[in-house]
């Protein structure tokens, strides 16, 4: 029992990331009909927003500390971050420690700008072109974005710590009457955060007028346009929202795995598999498949399973994808008539 709960929990954090990226991909596909291969790059940009904010907050200037001396006996020069000067040492340190949650706020405007620039500048011109062209141009864009990040931040992963309050682990088992389930705080937070974002996106689509128009546009774009609604503008906003979702997922993921320029591509490949398993164009399907595959992956990594079927943890996701695509061609919850040319 403990093992099962622990594996489910372990699967949740990766599953959350898959679900969030897949959700954004599906939003873009459902609204604009574009297969966005650069979505992983948006996730990566989000993670690097966290890195950047951390660096900005840690910007420091040298101060000669008269009390301390270095090993030669000279007064020691200490680097003091500017935030210490402005908010005092304790509050300043607190701000630096909390840079990842703060980066959520920092990243939203950046992701919106990036999203709108991408849609208006590039993807807009590809609506009428074949899907293969869309895949290719966004694939090229993904390479370019990854390389730009690599140029400015280097190729090595950059550790980005979570706030110290959440950096440890706790005994999750004690909460539900089981023993020995030690689980990191941050992963629970990541999962809750993912649930909040997913709920927010669904609520936005379901309960606002804007969401209603967008849903109508997803079903029949032309008719909505004929009713005098500027559907293109709304779809652009949806693209920005999808970019935001990916970016926020990236920000929060930074403490779990140190971001590097390749993480976007890594997640993208898996997220596409997730989207296809969930069913192209189905939002609940994308979320469901994301968590399902994340949990399956973590179960496949169990020692017992690996002894039985060596290597299964590496290929389980792809295996599931192949089986699902061959038995349920539309994916778990796919709509009829989407991408079936």
């Amino acid at each position: 029992m403990e093992v099962i709960v622990l594996q489910v929990l372990n699967g949740l954090d990766k599953g959350s990331a898959y679900a969030l990226i897949a959700l954004g991909l599906t939003l873009i596909f459902g609204t604009l009909g574009v297969v966005n291969f650069a979505h992983g790059a948006l996730f990566m940009i989000g993670a690097f927003c966290a890195v950047t904010l951390n660096r900005i907050l840690s910007l420091s200037h040298e101060v000669i500390d008269p009390d301390k001396t270095d090993f030669l006996g000279n007064p020691l020069a200490v680097n003091v971050p500017y935030v210490y000067d402005w908010f005092g040492e304790a509050a300043g340190q607190g701000i630096i420690n909390w840079s990842v949650p703060l980066a959520l706020l920092f990243s939203i405007p950046i992701m919106i700008i990036v999203g709108i620039a991408m849609e208006r500048g590039l993807i807009k011109h590809f609506y009428k072109r074949p899907h293969a062209d869309q895949i290719l141009v966004t694939f090229g864009l993904a390479i370019v974005l990854a390389e730009i990040i690599k140029y400015y931040y280097g190729a090595n992963p950059i550790p980005t710590p979570a706030p110290p309050a959440f950096s440890g682990s706790f005994d999750f088992g004690a909460l539900i009457g089981l023993e020995n389930i030690i689980y990191p705080y941050w992963r629970i937070i990541y999962f809750s955060f993912a649930m909040i974002i997913i709920a927010a996106v669904f609520a936005f689509l379901q309960f606002t007028t804007f969401g209603m128009v967008v849903r109508a546009g997803m079903v029949d774009r032309e008719t909505v346009g004929m009713l005098g609604i500027n559907i293109d503008k709304r779809f652009t906003i949806m693209f920005a929202i999808a970019a935001c979702v990916a970016g926020l997922a990236g920000v929060m993921y930074a403490p779990i795995n140190s971001p590097d320029y390749n993480m976007g591509m890594h997640f993208l490949v898996l997220s596409f598999v997730v989207v296809v398993v969930g069913g192209m164009g189905s939002l609940p399907g994308a979320v469901l498949a994301g968590f399902l595959l994340g949990i399956l992956e973590s179960f496949a990594s169990l020692g017992v399973v690996i002894d039985l079927l060596p290597g299964i943890n590496q290929i389980i996701i792809y295996l599931v994808a192949i089986v699902v695509l061959l038995t349920r061609p539309r994916g778990l919850m796919g709509r009829k008539g989407v991408m079936e040319e």
Partner: peptide, 25 residues
């Protein structure tokens, strides 16, 4: 058995599986 993007994903899945297997098991 599938076409369009599904075909792309299927071939990608097979290739990644071969890569993962060649790398590990």
């Amino acid at each position: 058995r599938r076409s369009g993007i599904y075909f792309s994903i299927l071939t990608l899945a097979f290739a990644q599986m071969s890569y993962a297997l060649a790398y590990s098991v």
